[in-house]
Design a protein around this nucleic acid. Structure first.
Lengths: 338, 338
DNA sequence: TTGAAAGCGCTAACAG
DNA sequence: CTGTTAGCGCTTTCAA
């Protein structure tokens, strides 16, 4: 045990001394520079090993001007965010992919009141890039942020500047149209939708898909109630739909969580699916798979979406060229609930 | 618009110049030092405001040897982790509390293969402290880590060294005993349990609580099957329980997610709750509230648990004295499913 | 109370 | 391929 091993962490300088080389050489080894002789390399590696040396992150960042860390910005309502299997799995994709790299993930909660604080932090060069998830129409500040640092969105951003944004998404319009069509093919003619928030692109697009499917079949499209993608929101929307007193024989709920809420309300009203009315939804999570009845739904590659977000961001950080829009495939999962 | 505003972020030096003071004084203002005259303070504040100055994190860390960031270590299986409302809400508590402080949250995925990598990162002084969640019996390395930096566990750690660990928990034994007792009070006499993993304290403790309740009533305790706290795990366990061919009139599922899986299996076997058998569980999440039937369960303050974890950790970092064990209250929520 | 000066541990030209 | 030399932007004694 060398004396240096005591106390605090060993420095690069100590490694250099132990290996009998200069600090630069140690630095080169750490950074995988090819310009190091095998002997020097071996000596340094051994010294590093023996001393249990780990580079000081802050010093590296300061000297190199690269933070090797990226931010994951999520909305203030962390509760609902993580409670949604969709976001949970996207985050999983992000985290897993990142753990294979040297990048570190910083979780940033965007307080609605002062998004200012968040934006400043990001602009101050504390991260190499940012991932924005579940943004509403007030995502303007983030699309602008993209001028300072690389930014990748999960889902198409709403604001105008979004036309220059990089994002990963699925074709929500097409997917919603496809799954709604199942209801129609099954003879449903009075079809409602529990739409997502009107200030989120996924909400709007799925609503549009539903509308397109109905229009194509000459079915009226006035049976719309919005929810917030949560079970409670789905319950409330379904209740409002029933209170309208109109006949309804089919419902497209824009998220599996909302479908669960709707299912509960229907059940308590003694209306059975798919006997009395058809119910289809979006997201192939556990709830959709095992509710009774299991729900016909849209499957989207959520984990993969997270992976791709990171992928695009890292390319951007490296100054590479990537396509602005990455569309992931979806497919209808038939379960007979329509 | 001053020329400095162009290009990259302003530095402390620029603020000093603009305010007509030295860098030291600016630094003092940033760090809330009391030794600054009101005039100097005002001048600096204004300069900071005008320039939109944000301190460079890396430089601060390097100079002060405090990282102002803490790590949240979660298990490799990020998918299941976030899919569980329990963890999701604990993380919420952590994130929300932290966003009120100057600390930054780093998400660390503990690869099971080389937890070595994770541990080194933590020991290299990259964070001021760590929060460990959902650890199995192999949490030895983390309890040892506590010798190098402050560490707080969510849930009692399993390993021996755990006796010196700081942790936030609920009395799982008592809670499980209480909810199981409802089954007994309702006349159930052949009571099974879908227990959690045998390498997690929450799994073992809840099993023990179930056992105590049964022992007290003179009911045999051989009807045990383990799950992994997930819906799929609950399904499999319930299936194994039924395959035993023994009569069962009550089940305590150690997590709400497992209860949902069990409910699905029971339903497909034509056995109704609570008519044919009683079912009680743990966690008062949406699933437990709105499954059919809604489930009698244990409510625990999850968000608050996250908050307290951070609270204890920050106290530890500040060198303060905190009690090692923080127990949070639980209560039984009656819903008639027993 | 304030400023000057000396680093924190590392990277990045540059010359050799 | 290697070592020397300057900093990166901030904190922190120490004098003044």
């Amino acid at each position: 045990m060398t004396p240096e091993q005591q106390g605090s962490a060993p420095t690069l300088e100590q490694v250099a001394k132990a290996a009998g080389v200069s600090r630069s050489t140690v630095s080169r080894v750490i950074n995988d520079s090819p310009k190091v002789t095998p002997e020097a390399l071996a000596a340094v590696r051994q010294a590093i090993e023996e001393l249990g040396y780990v580079p000081n992150r802050a010093a590296r960042i300061l000297a190199s001007r690269r933070t090797q860390s990226i931010a994951l910005v999520i909305p203030e309502n962390t509760a609902r965010f993580f409670a949604d299997p969709y976001f949970a799995t996207v985050v999983q994709g992000i985290a897993m992919y990142l753990s294979d790299t040297d990048y570190t993930l910083s979780l940033l909660i965007a307080a609605e009141k002062d998004g200012e604080k968040t934006r400043r932090y990001l602009q101050a060069g504390n991260v190499d890039g940012a991932l924005i998830l579940s943004h509403h129409s007030d995502d303007r500040s983030y699309t602008q942020l993209a001028r300072s640092i690389p930014v990748v969105f999960g889902g198409r951003p709403m604001s105008q500047e979004g036309s220059e944004a990089y994002y990963i998404d699925v074709d929500n319009v097409e997917a919603a149209r496809n799954v709604t069509r199942r209801l129609i093919e099954n003879g449903r003619r009075r079809i409602a939708t529990i739409a997502g928030p009107a200030d989120m692109s996924a909400g709007l697009d799925r609503l549009e898909g539903w509308r397109q499917a109905l229009d194509a079949a000459g079915i009226p499209t006035h049976l719309v109630e919005h929810g917030d993608f949560s079970p409670a929101g789905g319950e409330a929307a379904m209740r409002r739909l029933l209170e309208r007193g109109e006949e309804i024989d089919g419902v497209f709920a824009a998220s599996s969580l909302m479908a669960q809420g709707a299912l509960n309300v229907l059940r308590s009203h003694g209306r059975s699916v798919p006997h009395d009315l058809g119910l289809v939804t979006f997201d192939n999570d556990y709830a959709a798979q095992s509710s009774s009845p299991p729900l016909t739904t849209i499957e989207q590659p959520t984990v993969e979406q997270g992976r791709r977000m990171v992928d695009v961001l890292l390319h951007l950080i490296d100054g590479g060229t990537v396509s602005q829009i990455t569309m992931m495939p979806t497919r209808v999962i038939e379960r007979g609930s329509e």
